[in-house]
């Protein structure tokens, strides 16, 4: 039964992982973080990614055809790429009311998006199911 730190350390084992954090998208608070983050400040990075995650979770354009009302949030993950890295944000559904996501920063040269998506999905499930 992994805690937050074990989960983030597991995320850091992904190929190319530079940093990993568990962030609350309502407040922008990082509940935990390991590794490095863009700009060198994990709190600032958390606040910025939280804003993108919140907007994504709230847009009706991104909800599945069945309305997605049952799932909170209706979005599974969010991928952002730039010239040298990938950011993968994986929403974590919980049985209690929360708004958290896993954020992994991957170097583009050795990051594997498909693998990261699958692994983060598994980690999100394990993190809250225990």
């Amino acid at each position: 039964m992994p805690g937050i730190d074990e989960c983030l350390l597991e995320a850091m084992r992904l190929p190319g992982a530079r940093g990993a954090a568990l962030v609350d998208w309502t407040s922008g608070l990082a509940l935990g973080s390991v590794g490095e983050f863009p700009g060198g400040d994990h709190e600032a990075a958390a606040a910025e990614t939280a804003e993108v995650a919140r907007l994504t979770a709230e847009q009706r354009a991104f909800t599945p055809d069945d309305g997605g009302e049952g799932a909170d949030p209706p979005v599974e993950d969010l991928i952002i790429s730039n010239r040298d890295s990938y950011h993968v944000l994986r929403f974590v559904p919980t049985s209690f009311d929360s708004s958290v996501f896993l954020h992994v920063w991957l170097a583009r040269s050795d990051g594997n998006l498909a693998l990261a998506r699958i692994r983060l999905g598994e980690m999100a499930g394990r993190l809250v199911l225990g």
Binding site: M1, P2, G3, I4, E6, C7, L22, L31, V92, T94, S95, F96, S98, V100, R126, L127, V128, L129, G130
Partner: peptide
């Protein structure tokens, strides 16, 4: 309840 869930909550 798992450690992760309890920590997050």
């Amino acid at each position: 309840i798992g450690r992760g869930a309890l920590e997050v909550c």
